[in-house]
Structure formats: structure tokens, C-alpha cells
Design a protein around this nucleic acid. Sequence first.
DNA 1: TTGAAAGCGCTAACAG
DNA 2: CTGTTAGCGCTTTCAA
Lengths: 333, 333
Amino acid sequence: MKPTIYDIAKLAGVSTATVSKVFNRTGNISEATRSKVLRISRELKYQPSMVASALAGKNTYSLGLLIPDLVNPFFAELARHVEDRAHALGYNLIICNTDNDINKEIQYIQLLRQKSVDGIIVATGVRDDDALKELIHQQVPVVLVAREMSMLAVSTVLTDDFVGGYNAASHLLELGHRRIGLVAESMTVSSSKERVRGCRYALEEAGVPYDDKLLAVSDFSVAGGKEAAAGLLREEPTAIFACNDLLAIGVMQAAKEAGLAIPSELSVIGFDNTILATITDPPMTTIAQPIRAIGHQVVDLITREINGEQVVKQRVVLLPELIRRGSTAARSE
Amino acid sequence: MKPTIYDIAKLAGVSTATVSKVFNRTGNISEATRSKVLRISRELKYQPSMVASALAGKNTYSLGLLIPDLVNPFFAELARHVEDRAHALGYNLIICNTDNDINKEIQYIQLLRQKSVDGIIVATGVRDDDALKELIHQQVPVVLVAREMSMLAVSTVLTDDFVGGYNAASHLLELGHRRIGLVAESMTVSSSKERVRGCRYALEEAGVPYDDKLLAVSDFSVAGGKEAAAGLLREEPTAIFACNDLLAIGVMQAAKEAGLAIPSELSVIGFDNTILATITDPPMTTIAQPIRAIGHQVVDLITREINGEQVVKQRVVLLPELIRRGSTAARSE
DNA sequence: TTGAAAGCGCTAACAG
DNA sequence: CTGTTAGCGCTTTCAA
């Protein structure tokens, strides 16, 4: 049987309270008993049970992370950074892939509650606020990532998508492009919408007339981007801004199939700066989300809330950054 | 306060044992009390505490997954499939990124033990068997993924790397290549070694003389592959087999820099068939690991062990498969 | 500086 | 079919 605090106490000739105290560094324990307890614990390979300590009122030191899909490199990278930071602060991460399916989300949230996780990080597109509201009402620490939802009393960290879209368009405009296609991920997701808005704003500012036919809406897959781009290409844009790297890759593929050279005949710019952007040919110019910073911030926010340090809910908006690579160039025609 | 089984019992006018029974579907409960308990639970939004039930002797329904790095698409995909299967069977997944750092591994294993996870899936290159041996000795269910380590009494699921290497080389040979370069991930990792062995075996079988200069050893990054390939290219191979997709991408990049067209002047074949292989230009021919099947198998094995159904440790070897895409072609010179 | 004892919320005999 | 009761391993007053 696994040794318990009782075994240690008995062998060390002290009470379980004392053993507990040395492991939690609480109370005043003489150095003598302290080292004795530690020695015996080592001999028995004693490991305190977090299950028991959680039941006795302490934290579980587990966080839940709700994301759509780990296979999407953006979320894989986010998960990685979240896990890194969580681990550094003593927390473990329970990963939940929701596929943006509301039922899976609800199910996961319920499970996480049953496991008494200390907090839940939501990086998924929960349409249904109710599940979230309920969580918040039940005092479960929740932090949102990359999702605007200001009506709820919940901290959020996100990228400034509007600025990102603006930067993307500005870059293209600087290169002399005027006929700029747009592939959006979905117009119901606020991040995508903001990117489009930012882009449009830059165009207007530059006096470029708005053309509805230059906007294609897609899902967030390579195939979707390709299909959308195939349609867009008929409008003969000289550049295309895709709302994420996956879509941008689809765009690049469509361009190639249409016999258009990148960047000489068509400039393509993506969004996210995932690992994918570095391996395309040519390497992709993209708007970088500060994924690492996002992951760290979100963990810092939620742990502070868990520790009761944080009263004021806040929204942290991080700025994206243009990464120039080879998929954009000056307009040649 | 969160409602407990006591609150439900009192309101329903029954004992806590009865409430416990209806939630666990154990014992015989009359339909009347059953529905009454359920109704009250719903009204109070009661959620059974898994922490308490775990302490009382049941499972935690959590599994630990040790992987090197979620940013590596192979492991992201593996994690996704493992999570899918685990979730389907009622388990949650705690992700641990070890960066193949032995200290992080040991630390994570210790944490997972303290959390009393029901089992640990190891997909990481633990050099130090001791940590594993200790786990096994302590009766913690452990299953290994993609790592040969037959000396330990532990179930393993892995791809037949030898056959994979053999298939890769055979494909290249069929295309007429005789001077085949090899980029290995590391010769100490058994999977990489086996892939190289399989490749060599096919070459020998075909009577192609062995040339030590055609083997380059690298790490598992794109940059590493590129560097290794740059060296290899001086030996003028007509085809290169890279031991994983990341390396293969590096090879493709090096080829491009050297002004070699793929596949007409250099054929490149990878291994894994991650999402990356579909987005290169040209799309990459690669040896597909059945990642999904691996993930499912490993979860099935470990849960069976958890449930005590499984006495015989076993090694499940899944066969890889050649995926022909555009990065390989018949030798042209 | 240490210990006794009462929980934390649930389970599992066992008895009725 | 239902209830009583003794834990599970740890934390935390409160006394000593």
C-alpha cells in the first residue's frame, strides 16, 4: 500500500498534524522533527495525496483548458505556452478539445467542475453564454482567451484583431496594392470580424473603394481557404489577406493551381504566425499573435483570481506585429 | 456553498447511501426514490465531487500524457487522438510537455502520482528507466507509445519503423533512385534507428552499395534538417529520405536554396504524415504513421489495465503506409 | 513546538 | 429496497 501521513507520523513518533505541517511549511516545527519527518518520508517514498488534501479544503492545482482542436497549430502553440506557465506555477493542465461543439463544451465544463479544477481557461467559441454565466455565478475562476465577450464579468486576454487587420492591409497598401481580396474565417466570430474591419478601415483611409466581391467567407481549414480563394481569384486581386495562416495556405495553393506566382503575381498575407507560416514556399508574411505572451498572461490572471488576489476583472489586449517574409511583394502590374 | 450528497439526501428524505447509489447505478433503487433524488439534484444543480469519490476509493478518471512538445505537430495530433479516445471512455487528459528533459519527466511523474491519476501514457524519450520502473513497481498503469523498451514489463504501442524505412526506400528504388541520402533524427532513439535500418535493408536487398557519407544525423527540427541536408547535397544524391516530416521540410528548403527542383532534380520523402506534409510545395510524399489508431490503442490498453481486465502486457505494432504525393518522382538523369 | 480531533464529500459493507 | 456507519488521507483549529 502507498504510505500515508499516518505511516510517517507513526515512524517518526509524531502526530499527523506535525507531518502535515512540515510538508506545508506551516506552523512552527523544530528543525529536529522536521528533518526526521523528511528523512522517513524519503525512505518510504512518501508522496502526499493531492486528492485528500483537495478534499480537506485545499486547491486541486489543476486547470482546465477548452480549445477547439489541438491539431490546429495555433491552439497547439497556445496550449503549449499555457501549459508551460501553469507548470511553472505548480498547476497541471487538463486539455479539452471541443471542436467548437456546444454540447462538448457543456459536457467538459461539467466534468471539470466535478473534478474541482481551480479554474477554467476558455479559448473556444462558446456561443452559449449560459454555461459560462453559470460558472461565474458559481464562483469558478474563468478567463477567456481571444474572444470578445465584454458583457460578462470575466477577465479576457486577446490580440487586437482590428489593429492586426489594419496592419495587414497597410502593409499591402504600402506595397502598392489596391485590389485586395479578403478571406474571412467566419463573420460571426468576433476575432475574424475585427480583422476584416481593421482591414477595411485601412482601405477606406487610403481611399480604396470597397468591393463586396472581394470578401469571401470560409471555415478555418486549408481546404476552405483554397476554395474561397479560387472564387476570389476571378476578381483579379493583386493581393489577398487571409484571416489565419491555415486559410492563407489554402490561398497560396489556389494561386499556384491558377498559375499565379507568389509573390510576384499575387501577394498573400496571413494571420497568427504559427509554425506553418515558416514552412510554406515562399515563407509567409503574416501578422503575428503574441501567442506566448497570451498564454502566460491568461495563466497569471487566472491564478491570481484563484488566490483571491484579483478583484478587478480586466481585459488585456496585446498588440500583433507584422512579420515580413516572402509571400508579399510590391505590386508589379 | 456547493451542494453535497447530504443536502440532496436531506431534501429527498433519504440517506446519503441511497443518493450515492442512484448516481452510481449500484444496488437496487426503486424508480420512485430514484427520480426524486434526480429531480432534487437537478434543482440544486448538484455535481458529485470526484475528489471525494476518488478519496473514497474510486478512480480519478484522469490520465497523464507525457510528450516532448505539443508544438511538434506529430505530438499535437497524437495528443488529440489520445484525448478523443480518453474522453469517450470518461477520462480526462493531463498534458505534460517534457522537452525530453529527464528532470521535467521525473517531476511530472511525481506530480501525476500525487494527483493519483489512474494511468500514465509515456510518449517521451525517457532515458532513465528508473522512473518508469518505479512506477511499474508501484502498480501504476503505464503504457508506452512509439518507444521500444522491451525489457520492461509494460505494454507498448508503436509503428513498425523498420517497415516504414523499408517502404520509403523501396518507393525511392522503384522510382529508379540509387543514390539515396538519409537524414536521421538521432541514432540513439530507437524509432529513428529502425527507420534507418529498414531503409538500409531495402538498399542492400536491391544491391545498392552502402555509402556512409549519405547519412546525416540531426535533431528533430526544420533547421536541423536543412543543415543536415545542405551537407548531404554535396554528395549529389537523387533522393533523400528524412526520418520525419519536420526534417523533410528542412531538406526541401535546403534543396530549394541549392537551386534543386523537387521532385524533378531531387526526390524527398518524409515520415509521420502530419498536417505539415499536406502543405508543403509540392505536397510531401511520406510514410504515414497511423496516429489515430495509435492514440486509440494506447488508451484502450491503459484503461483495460486500469480496470484490471488486462493481465498480459503486450506490444502492439501498427504498420505504416506510403502516402504518395508530389515530392518524389522517377529519377531523371 | 506539538497533538487531539473534527471534518472535507463520498463509498461500501452490513444490517434491517 | 434503504439506512447506518466506518473509513479514504489530509488540514486545521484549539489546547496543551
